[in-house]
């Protein structure tokens, strides 16, 4: 990782703490996923999800203070907002359900599931925008670090694919992917925290023209893949029984 300017000690410390916190949150999920296979549910620990979410938000708060320009700072704020809204989502879902009278437990679960699904889609779109903003911010991020930020964009697209429930058929298959996913996420978020976009020396004037526009190749890639994958998954959902009978 080449950085053109030597970092001050304060920036380096904040960058390292943020990177460490991001690695810690991913390590938690990385350990939690395979443990579920053997019946150990780390999410059952009281406030586990809340604590992990707050650690993630704290790491981005630190990164926000060392943003190299306005676009990166805006991106950091979007990511923090997405994270905080995610933390209060169970509360919002429960309030919505409470406002609807005479709901059976099944209906309540369905509504909560749909609210979560829509929220995760919107959140993914905002996160893709935030990451694309960092890439377009004019910071001198090297090619290798850029490719890792692209990995984060790619993984965010997962929440935009429709018919994702088809994926949850075999626990072993899902666990293999989840382990690979969190290992790549861990590296990607570490590289993002250490990239040239978070080197301090805040300069509000260097954002290139059009950096804030969502009409970029990152959104194009996500949109095209989301349409293709959703269409294919819809086909599979339609012919599900026939496929199962053939094999």
């Amino acid at each position: 990782m080449e950085q053109t300017l030597p970092l001050s000690k304060s920036v380096r410390v904040r960058q390292n703490i943020a990177a460490g916190l991001l690695v810690a949150t991913n390590l938690f999920w990385l350990v939690a996923a395979p443990l579920q296979l053997v019946g150990v549910n780390l999410m059952a620990i009281p406030f586990a999800e809340l604590i992990v979410g707050l650690v993630f938000a704290a790491s981005w708060l630190l990164l926000c203070t060392v943003a190299s320009n306005k676009a990166v700072r805006v991106a950091s704020i979007i990511i923090i907002a997405c994270c905080l809204i995610k933390l209060v989502m169970p509360l919002i879902a429960n309030v919505v359900c409470a406002s609807l009278p005479d709901l059976s437990e099944m209906d309540r679960m369905n509504i909560i599931g749909k609210i979560n699904l829509i929220f995760y889609m919107i959140r993914a779109i905002f996160m893709v925008y935030a990451y694309s903003l960092i890439l377009n911010s004019g910071s001198e991020i090297d090619e290798n670090d850029r490719s890792w930020i692209v990995v984060l964009i790619v993984f965010m697209a997962q929440s935009i694919f429709l018919f994702r429930w088809l994926l949850a058929g075999t626990m072993l298959v899902w666990s293999i992917w989840i382990v690979a996913y969190y290992i790549l996420m861990l590296i990607a978020e570490f590289r993002l925290a250490k990239c040239a976009a978070f080197t301090g020396n805040y300069d509000s004037g260097i954002v290139p023209k059009g950096a804030y526009s969502p009409l970029n190749r990152y959104f194009a890639g996500v949109l095209i893949a989301a349409v293709l994958v959703s269409a294919l998954l819809m086909l599979i959902a339609h012919y599900r029984e026939a496929i199962e009978n053939i094999f």
Binding site: F161, L233, I236
Partner: peptide, 11 residues
């Protein structure tokens, strides 16, 4: 589940 495996590959 063959469906889950095909869906995962598509993803």
């Amino acid at each position: 589940s063959i469906v889950a495996i095909i869906a995962s590959t598509i993803m």
